[in-house]
Design a protein around this nucleic acid. Structure first.
Length: 758
DNA sequence: GCACCAACTTAGCACCACTTCA
DNA sequence: TGAAGTGGTGCTAAGTTGGTGC
């Protein structure tokens, strides 16, 4: 494949790829189970494929294969542990209860038992901030090492991160230009504090991200407001007054009552388990069955509140807006290296029920309230430190300038760290973004060499090298994600390239008139289904057959490969190269090619924008960026069609009028009738333009039904390509990027000329 | 070599404010 | 003017990457 390889050509089923993706998530699940249930059938299939493929393989090849299998040491070097785990799961599945869970599409969740007397007191105003429960006791995740000596830990952290890559002169110079542009853009947008405006154009070479950082800390979720006494909860048909703690958690469930989540067994089970932890002993004894709980009055109350909010007077709404603006001004900005920067998420996530995506084993668990004593503040020593709410303390205040975050805390569901960071429009984020695209541009220069290399590696004597080469081919050709290994039972069962299992692909020596077709069917990030049928090169096909030999459906396809091995290899091929860079590179290069192909100079502005959206769409399809069709989709399409029909009627009327005006003018031959003809002509033109706009809108909307353009636009497409395209064709950049996007890509808007090449 | 973890990017969904239209 | 529709935005889950320590 060369730089201009076309993905769309390779996608046999490209056109209909997304039509059924969402509604078929469940079907997919069913299918997965069928795979397991019909293992024997699959085995037969496999041997069938195997037979046909072995027709042309000699005994020598078989001997080579055997040799290859053992050359790199013992088998299943990398993935033994995970494989074993899956096997264990399989064994467990014979146990009735677990088996039932699996049938429901959930892997056996890893649930740790908790002390029953661990009661969570729901907070009430200031008092609420003092909880009896110890953090470390209520978490579901494994306890992490407790850091005691701040200074030592800071030193360690500083050591941990390598200084940013040293640039060559050209890059340093370009970076300087970049900084100036970003400064200019930011200074136009935000007024600087007098005396604070002091920009350093040079980047820190010691790995520091900043020298000065000052902020006001986070905004906490508002305290829980107990329900009014007329809003009642019923158990088994009888009214029951809940304790504040139990009531708060109950409201989380009530607020989600209309959502599909609350119908899912695992969600209900997790919720009920965590809810019970918040109950008093008396409540715990009484409330034993979620099915008997009636949250409907609570649910109605919240719906009424929501309606009331909508029905507020203009003044009331303005008041709220002003208060939000005040909070934004106070907490939404920081000073980083004496420059005022917007903070992305200055509000702490409120408590609620965890909404994992796909078949997440932890969905429904209680996300606990974050308090000041959970919060780590990061700022510079010489700054004015943020103050915790009265009567509280921060967990820690640290001064680590090797990181970019301002605030962090550990969440209780997965035990992962959450951060408050800067807005994408900030210098620090913009610079990182720019670097990302520069790395992708460097890949462009050496991608042919890398492709030749992995093609050579398909013939390697070593299994691990062949696997690496085939995986890389998929990452490059199909823009698959790297695919880290995941802990089973902790998250939804999703995969990427390196973690693909045998059950995720099917091989067809011949399919729909094409040779060597691979069918992919798996759940990727966010449990979005990836379905694609792709013809591949013969060697890839043969290798896949080899990788699948003697394996169970739930065995790893690439058992000698993981992301770490792959990225190490990529690093050797190009400095800074990782699997992710291929996605950025292929997305950006595809946009550039598609724009060249689709844009016609003769088109008017709406037609050109349609071309842009189509190019954007090609990338979104490549990256498998899907969305659920909007709930109002069918209706809004219908409305649009009605408008189009009406406009068509209007057009034929106008044309008829024009015709008769022309005939009239022919007879009369006076100035007045000539003018009438001109007016009618203009009317026809105007209506034609309006009709065209509507038709373009309808096409665009229809094509976008299940495809999300925003993700690729924001994360994968070098904005300079879009800016250059706008400049070249005289399209206002506002037509392509909204305000937020223009702020994020301010650097590109100023930097790119109409001749920019990715 | 591997598990673990921190730090960051990428991702889709839900809601709300703004716009459009009858 | 109010209802309907939609794009923008915030939210937060879910990835990737790379360093550390055993």
């Amino acid at each position: 494949m060369s730089g201009d390889h076309s993905h769309s050509e390779d996608q046999v089923d490209g056109g209909s790829r997304f039509n059924d993706s969402h509604k078929h998530k469940d079907k997919y699940k069913e299918k997965e189970h069928k795979h397991k249930d019909h293992k024997k059938d699959k085995e037969r299939d496999k041997s069938k494929h195997g037979n046909s493929d072995h027709k042309d393989s000699s005994d020598k090849k078989h001997r080579d294969k055997e040799k290859m299998k053992h050359k790199d040491g013992s088998t299943d070097k990398y993935k033994d542990k995970h494989k074993e785990k899956r096997k264990e799961e399989k064994m467990k599945s014979f146990d009735g209860k677990v088996k039932k869970e699996k049938e429901n599409g959930f892997a056996s969740p890893h649930v740790k038992s908790e002390p029953e007397d661990d009661i969570y007191h729901s907070p009430k105003h200031e008092k609420s901030l003092k909880r009896e429960r110890d953090d470390d006791n209520d978490s579901e995740f494994k306890p992490k090492k407790i850091k005691t000596e701040i200074k030592t830990e800071n030193d360690k952290r500083a050591k941990k991160r390598k200084p940013d890559e040293v640039r060559n002169n050209h890059e340093q110079k370009e970076f300087s230009i970049f900084s100036n542009i970003l400064l200019k853009a930011q200074n136009e947008g935000t007024p600087e504090e007098p005396g604070r405006l002091k920009w350093e154009e040079e980047r820190y070479t010691d790995g520091s991200k900043w020298k000065f950082l000052e902020h006001k800390g986070p905004v906490f979720a508002p305290p829980y407001e107990p329900l009014p006494s007329n809003v009642k909860f019923y158990y088994d048909g009888k009214h029951m007054k809940l304790s504040p703690g139990a009531e708060e958690v109950a409201t989380f469930f009530a607020k989600m009552l209309d959502h599909e989540y609350t119908t899912k067994d695992i969600f209900r089970k997790n919720f009920f388990k965590d809810w019970r932890k918040e109950m008093t002993a008396e409540e715990k004894a009484k409330l034993t069955d979620l099915k008997k709980c009636d949250f409907s009055e609570m649910s109605d109350y919240f719906k009424a509140q929501s309606e009331a909010r909508k029905a507020m007077t203009k003044d009331e709404k303005l008041k709220i807006k002003a208060e939000n603006e005040r909070l934004l001004q106070e907490y939404g900005f920081c000073i980083m290296d004496n420059h005022k920067e917007r903070i992305a998420n200055f509000r702490i996530e409120p408590p609620g029920l965890f909404r994992g995506r796909g078949d997440h084993p932890k969905m429904g668990m209680l996300k606990r309230r974050i308090r000041p004593q959970d919060i780590i503040i990061n700022c510079s020593k010489d700054s004015e430190h943020p103050k915790p709410p009265p009567g509280t303390k921060w967990k820690e205040v640290r001064h680590d300038n090797k990181v970019t975050w301002l605030v962090s805390w550990t969440e209780n569901i997965q035990g992962s760290i959450k951060y408050i960071m800067l807005n994408p429009s900030s210098r620090i984020k913009g610079e990182k973004d720019w670097q990302k695209y520069e790395t992708a541009r460097r890949l462009k220069k050496c991608v042919d060499r890398i492709r030749n290399q992995y093609r050579e590696d398909w013939k390697s004597k070593e299994m691990r090298i062949r696997q690496r080469a085939v995986a890389l081919y998929f990452i490059d050709k199909l823009a698959l994600r790297a695919g880290n290994e995941k802990e089973e039972g902790e998250t939804a069962d999703t995969v990427g390239c390196c973690s693909l299992r045998v059950e995720h692909i099917k091989l067809y020596p011949e399919n729909d008139g094409q040779e060597y077709v691979v069918e992919f069917d798996f759940l990727g990030k966010d449990s979005i289904r990836y379905y694609n049928k792709v013809p591949v090169e013969k060697r890839v096909f043969k290798n896949l057959q080899l990788f699948m030999e003697n394996k169970e459906p739930d065995d790893d396809l690439f058992d000698r490969l993981n992301t770490s091995v792959l990225n190490k290899h990529l690093q050797e091929l190009m400095d800074g190269l990782t699997a992710k860079v291929f996605r950025t590179y292929n997305a950006s290069i595809t946009l550039q090619q598609q724009l060249k192909e689709l844009t016609s100079g003769e088109d008017n502005v709406p037609a050109k924008i349609l071309s842009y959206n189509r190019a954007n769409r090609a990338v979104a399809i490549l990256c498998n960026h899907q969305r659920a069709p909007p709930k109002t989709f069918e209706k809004s399409m219908q409305n649009l069609q009605t408008k189009i029909d009406a406009k068509r009627g209007q057009l034929s009327d106008a044309k008829r009028d024009l015709k008769s005006a022309k005939a009239d003018a022919k007879i009369r031959r006076d100035e007045k009738s000539k003018k009438t003809v001109e007016t009618k002509k203009k009317a026809v033109q105007r209506i034609e333009e309006q009709l065209m706009k509507l038709e373009v809108q309808a096409t665009d909307r229809e094509e976008n039904k299940q495809i999300a353009l925003g993700t690729s636009k924001l994360n994968y497409l070098d904005p300079r390509i879009s800016v250059a395209w706008c400049k070249k064709w005289g399209i206002p950049v506002e037509k392509i990027y909204n305000k937020t996007q223009r702020e994020k890509f301010a650097w590109a808007i100023d930097m790119a000329e109409d001749d920019y090449e990715f």
